[in-house]
Write a protein that binds this DNA or RNA. Sequence first.
DNA 1: TCGTTAACCTGACGGTGTCAACCTTCGGTG
DNA 2: CACCGAAGGTTGACACCGTCAGGTTAACGA
Lengths: 230, 230
Amino acid sequence: MTTRRVRAKRGEGALLREEILGAAEELLAEAGTEEALTVRAVAVRAGVSTPAVYLHFAGKEALVEAVCMRVWGELGRLFRDNSGGDPWLALGRCARAYIRFALDHPVQYRVLMMRPSGSPGVPPAAAEAFGHMVDAVSACMETGVVAGDPEEIALGLWSALHGCASLLIAQPSFPWPDREALIDRVVRVAGFGTALYSRLPRDLPPSDELAARFDALGAELAAGEDQSSP
Amino acid sequence: MTTRRVRAKRGEGALLREEILGAAEELLAEAGTEEALTVRAVAVRAGVSTPAVYLHFAGKEALVEAVCMRVWGELGRLFRDNSGGDPWLALGRCARAYIRFALDHPVQYRVLMMRPSGSPGVPPAAAEAFGHMVDAVSACMETGVVAGDPEEIALGLWSALHGCASLLIAQPSFPWPDREALIDRVVRVAGFGTALYSRLPRDLPPSDELAARFDALGAELAAGEDQSSP
DNA sequence: TCGTTAACCTGACGGTGTCAACCTTCGGTG
DNA sequence: CACCGAAGGTTGACACCGTCAGGTTAACGA
């Protein structure tokens, strides 16, 4: 049997909120899915009766969302820690940090990013993640390498990173050859895609054109690669 | 009140299976979420008692999966229809077709691609989608523009396309500037990323190197663009 | 005509999210 | 000290869900 929680003192009712959040976070990680999470189980682990949860959360939906949002501040910290120095190098670090954050908190990431937005309006998690991308891209723009609308370009970058993260999370039984290699490749391609954005043709050209262009282009890139990796 | 379905004749019991699938498909589209779909509601719409559903499906999970799988064959048709002609042009068309397919069947796509795989092993939907990507990329490889493991390269492409599709589906209230523009950009960048794969440096270089390289590179690409768009 | 069997239905069980109503104890007030 | 308002919960119940054991009906061959 689980020990019953001692009633909080007057004015400290909000303490229970944190304890419920903690219990829900544990159970969500154990269950792996929000559907498998139960308000009753949360209450039991918090040592409290079931309806007590509703004193602090409007419903199960709100509880789950609060649990997921709790860890989201970490993303901001990761972006801040990786933002110094050269903007393009920082962009690569932030991109990796984003994917790694998603893989470190798979349940939270799935709940917040892979669900039909229950509440109307922009989901705060999505807005915050996107905001970080825009910042990173904006910094790169000041180097003069790429031109365009930072938000538009950041959308493409975000999309690529989210695709990698969400595939790895939602398809764990897929025979991924190498997670790290995929992440590296996606970050690299997405980063170069961002850098090349305003210089890319409007669409993929046919093979013969592509081959002709890439002869010179490949040599150019390879030359830079040789000098940058001793 | 809903009319009760007339009992099927002997040997035609499988007819009910199709009717249940149809009812479930309708309700899933109306509800928008699998959680909002109810076995009882499906049975009512099919004009049959609730446990009758279990005569043809192992459970709700199996029913939902069958409904989603029902539309997935369309993806194969789309890829086949877009596979002719030049491989790189076909790659661009297939990429667009993939995203459009996802947007045309948002509920099914979410259920099959954005959920913790309930059953162990590779989800058939994911395997099939990935298989098409590998085929499209393999065809491009024979043009000699890009070299490497087709599966590895296809993973990057798939990841980018899935990211775009899943973001658009899961975040409908996000202030997307222009869906079509985003799709175009993602397809373009992912396609070029695929084409450039074996020629890209191992990581993003710092700004000064990037700028120096892209001067020549941008001119090269722009020249090709001028000649390909009259 | 009759029995077999495919095709379904009835009724129930355990579990879920949620709510109205009740209780219990703290802390200030007369 | 007695009291009482209210913060901080609990009890019991409701409606709904997925699922199953067992009974019922109707079509067909013999």
